[in-house]
């Protein structure tokens, strides 16, 4: 049985046995390159659920951004590895209760980055997409291309080490656990080896592209403050222009706000219309958090998020005596 069939069957059982009031999954989108979130409350709706390379949405955002909707409900959720870490983080940050969620893991081989597909088709509109595993076929007016999966995967997936849920109630296939990934550090090390001024120039150039649409924040499962600092106007921390000083503040601070909480799902980068590299710094901070504090965001349901935890005798060389 393939993942999609397996998933449908599981959702149906959960709904019919009244284990959940609602199930969050994905269905075929109205556009071929992105699946749409699916909200299942009946057995028939379960038939629409899918899982393939287009299922990029991290569905856990509904727990925090649409909180009222989910209060006092039992909710099932389909999760990739990164999504599962978000759910765990939500639980650790007391946004939802473990007993109120049923976590259904799906074996993930990565999700696509639309921008990469469109680069491969040279901008021609894709009307149909078929996920064949190692390759992905895209069809449009007067063309049909078979693309290597690796070439169109989101950069978060290329650097992923936890492709499957570490915390789950049901798993649709076989969980692989941790997968070593060298790709993860390469870009960061190359960047860190540049001289200071080059790094600053590069950062500036990258963030200068930002049009401050805040799509990255809105799709991020870890960004759920009632009033985000960019929206505050008394005091006003940051101007609303696209001028790079404003953008630099936005990016550096968002980066620090999700420190130890970013699950590297890549939703932000996929949502970005300006093709900004948002993940490199997130990854860099995640590595630092792991080195210093020994924590990986959302991995251990019995742990504590790094930035809400401490040890009394931590390194404090940088402190002025």
């Amino acid at each position: 049985m393939n993942t999609t069939d397996n998933l449908r069957k599981t959702i149906k059982t959960l709904i019919s046995e009244k284990k959940v009031d609602l199930f969050l999954g994905w269905e075929k989108g109205s556009l071929p390159l992105s699946a749409t979130p699916l909200f299942v409350t009946t057995g028939e709706q379960a038939e629409r659920a899918i899982f393939d390379v287009t299922c990029g949405n991290n569905l856990s955002i509904y727990f925090t951004k649409d909180k009222k909707q989910y209060a006092n409900k039992k909710v099932g959720i389909a999760v990739k590895g990164c999504d599962a870490r978000s759910v765990v983080l939500n639980i650790l940050e007391k946004q939802i209760k473990r007993e109120d969620v049923v976590i259904v893991g799906v074996p993930c081989n990565g999700v696509l980055d639309k921008k990469k597909v469109l680069a491969a088709t040279e901008g021609r509109e894709v009307l149909e997409l078929v996920d064949n595993g190692d390759t992905v076929t895209v069809k449009g007016k007067g063309f049909e291309l078979s693309l290597n999966r690796q070439e169109i995967l989101s950069s978060s997936c290329l650097a992923c080490i936890y492709p499957d849920a570490q915390e789950y109630d049901f798993f649709m296939g076989e969980a692989r656990g941790e997968v070593p990934n060298e790709e993860r550090v390469k870009e960061i090390i190359d960047f860190q080896n540049l001289p200071d001024s080059d790094r600053w120039e590069q950062t500036r150039a990258e963030y200068q592209k930002c049009i401050r649409c805040y799509a990255c924040r809105n799709v991020c499962p870890s960004c759920y403050c009632n009033v985000c600092f960019v929206d505050q106007n008394d005091p006003k921390w940051i101007g609303s222009t696209c001028e790079y000083t404003d953008s630099v503040i936005f990016h550096v601070i968002r980066n620090l706000h999700v420190a130890g909480r970013c699950v590297e799902c890549g939703a932000c980068e996929r949502a970005c219309p300006m093709d900004i590299n948002l993940l490199m710094m997130n990854r860099k901070v995640a590595m630092e958090v792991k080195d210093r504090f020994g924590d990986v965001a959302g991995l251990d349901i019995n742990g504590k998020p790094a930035m809400s935890d401490f040890k009394e005798d931590e390194k404090q060389k940088f402190i002025m005596g």
Partner: peptide
């Protein structure tokens, strides 16, 4: 204690961005 962790990261991010 939380300040200390946070400050360590802020410094790290400053360093890595070339600030």
């Amino acid at each position: 204690y939380h300040t200390r962790r946070r400050f360590a990261l802020v410094k790290e991010v400053f360093d890595s961005l070339g600030l």
